[in-house]
Amino acid sequence: MSGTAAVVEKPKTYWVAPISYPAPASSGKTGLWRTERPVIHLEKCVKCLYCWLYCPEDTILRREDDYVYVDYDYCKGCGICAAVCPTNAIDMVPEGGES
């Protein structure tokens, strides 16, 4: 035996376990759930990154200069980003109206 790690024989496979792998859109484009859309006004943004930190869905993304933008394909419209923004730079706009 060489090394500290014990030699473990590869177990014989009797059946193949159903293994799923992490991937986006495991439940489809969840942006369709949204009733209100977050709109970021970059002139008020102070790059505190709170919206990026608190977003449960990882749909607020950071640019190279740390300004943020929203991935509308998957944003569920919960509004946490607008609630935690210290400068009120994010507005929740109802979906379906004029853009």
Binding site: P22, A23, P24, A25, S26, S27, G28, K29, T30, W33, P56, E57, D58, T59, L61, D71, D73, Y74, K76, G77, C78, G79, I80
Partner: peptide, 12 residues
């Protein structure tokens, strides 16, 4: 991306 967008969790 730390999370995996488009999952089945409720909003919020």
């Amino acid at each position: 991306r730390y999370g995996s967008p488009g999952n089945a969790a409720c909003p919020g």
